[in-house]
Write a protein that binds this DNA or RNA. Structure first.
Lengths: 338, 338
DNA sequence: GCTAATTTTGCACAGGTATGCAAACGGTGG
DNA sequence: CCACCGTTTGCATACCTGTGCAAAATTAGC
């Protein structure tokens, strides 16, 4: 039970030095002699002193807080990314302040205001619709923004995604090579760049093989809509393969086909997802999917953000990281597929 | 692009009033006349002024930041709780600063120090082993702590859990009523109160029916260990039912039994979990499980914490919320079970 | 219209730290 | 022993806001 607050002045008094000396000891790269450092640290340890981050932030203008704007954590990809992001930032002395954009949602303005109120040093947005507006306005306010797993036309913003075009193209090749003739696609929300890019890449890949999707529906990243779309595709379009815009929806599709419609995956219909969340590897699904290398995406996000914080003139980056197709059992494997 | 920072002094100058007047306008419950408020708000809006939370925190001593210490987000229960917690706190004007205790982990001390550095107003711990030490030390430092989904002997700490004893007892009754004779139990980590309480409740429930578990193993909340334990239980102890300490492990157990061992759930072995995470309702698992009412748990957690922050003398609370057994298809349903 | 009671406003300071500047210090070479 | 130079240290101030206190302004009461 320390007497409430112990300040740098207390330490200074105890060590018989000035407050600024104490400050310098706790400021990396400041000019302090060995003897001084020892004296101060001894006094500090004895009193249990630690610098007050808030007071420090007030004067340095940096809070060492990163705002993370996130809409929903139901898709396992995001908790996973959150955990990695937080660990990576913690190693650099930053911490994540969470802003949920999903709630009753007074909307974007509310979130933006709160973000600015806390003087966050940088912002990461993930899985959120109104990304564009948040990002643009915060960037205008001079706070570096990185869009995680979502793209954006605006060249002033940094973004980190997987290479959705190339990834979806690989999936197209894979499905064609597997001998599928009637291929459907349930897109992620087409209001998101991720959804659009995957669709475009997929169409391009099919086109290269002289094919085209026979049916395309927007799944809005929601299980129920994806399941309904899948049912329609099977009943009406008689598809033999579906590329689903992310794993989260793909699980719903597999459930619908197997348990509601009594079909076999992949015998009746091949399913391919996108993300490779941990669940995709579980025996119940064994989902063939394109891996988003979340480790590398997180690293890229963190370094893009921190670089930008360190020197604000750094040009914004648009990074797309390539990921491998992970072949499991939810889709027919082409003969001789390496 | 606002000229970097606009302070209360700028607003005061523009409105032709004192800085304290501006401060009062933005402080709920302060004494300000209508005319003054209008003038100030007009000037503030025009300049795009918003109070600096950090400076405010420095003087009021409250940061409106809640530290959330969390170890792993793989178990879907926690992202779900995180989302709810964040939304609930946001409504009260608080935000969550994340502290991952899972990382390379310089250990507890590191985390505690960082928590204190940020002057958090309160702390919630979830899914983390060294809870006891963190909680005790932070509480000693005068910061209210609530343990979420974990209990603790120490009477000075608040905690919110589901009623693990009663819940596990219900499961015991259910399995006995289902005619199971050779019942196994894979505990959550027995180093956690949650794990211990569920085991105790389960044993008590069986004992009441004159039964007892024929084999008990510690699953440590990990998929791999749970799967291995399940295999052992089937091969060596020939169980006909397993109560698994949480859903996260239960999924692994079902996968192991069905896909590695070729058994039928529930025909060969009944499986019951605990938590009722969203996944439990998916057709692939249809897991019978005891629901932890995370909505109510979150509400209780938030109000316990905020009450404690508002008046530090409030007695710590230990709250256990009752949850219903959700009967699905992973365990034999007793005849005439309502 | 005048005084008393009440509300509103400004003043000045505090909260805990970082940092530019000048003074003090320590060592070197002659 | 002195002049000189590089390193340490202390002083004072700034960061931005909230709040106790006293002065000013408003309202009430007659």
């Amino acid at each position: 039970m320390p007497e409430r607050k112990v300040t740098s002045l207390d330490v200074a008094a105890k060590a018989g030095v000035s407050q600024s000396a104490v400050s310098r000891v706790f400021t990396p790269g400041a000019s302090v002699s060995k003897r001084m450092a020892e004296k101060v640290r001894a006094a500090a340890d004895e009193l249990g002193y630690r610098p007050n981050v808030l007071a420090r932030s007030l004067i340095t203008g940096r809070s060492r807080i990163i705002g993370l704007v996130v809409a929903y954590l139901e898709n396992q990809f995001y908790p996973d990314a959150l955990e990695r992001l937080s660990n990576a930032l913690q190693e650099q002395g930053y911490h994540i302040l969470i802003f949920m954009a999903s709630g009753t949602g007074e909307g974007v303005d509310q979130v933006i205001d709160e973000l600015l109120d806390y003087q966050v040093d940088g912002i990461i947005t993930a899985s959120v619709g109104m990304t564009d507006e948040i990002a643009a306005r915060c960037d205008a306010a001079g706070i570096p923004v990185v869009l995680f797993n979502r793209g954006q036309e605006d060249l002033r913003l940094s973004e980190v995604t997987s290479d959705n075009l190339a990834g979806a193209r690989k999936i197209a090749e894979f499905l064609v090579a597997g001998g599928h003739k009637r291929i459907g696609h349930i897109t992620g929300w087409t209001g998101s760049s991720t959804g659009r890019d995957r669709e475009a890449g997929f169409r391009a890949g099919l086109a290269e093989a002289g094919a085209a999707p026979i049916i395309v529906r927007d799944g809005h990243y929601r299980r129920a809509e994806a399941a309904a779309a899948a049912r329609e595709m099977v009943e009406i379009a008689e598809v033999d393969a579906i590329f689903v815009g992310n794993d989260h929806m793909a699980f719903a599709v597999m459930d619908e086909l197997r348990f509601s419609m009594g079909l076999s995956v992949p015998k009746d219909v091949s399913i391919v997802g996108y993300d490779d969340v941990p669940l995709a590897a579980w025996p119940a699904y064994q989902l063939t999917t394109l891996r988003q290398p979340s480790g590398r995406m997180v690293d890229a996000t963190v370094s893009a953000l921190l670089d930008r914080i360190a020197s604000p003139d750094t040009a914004p980056r648009k990074i797309a990281i390539d990921g491998p197709l992970i072949v499991r059992a939810s889709a027919t494997v082409p003969e001789g597929w390496e």
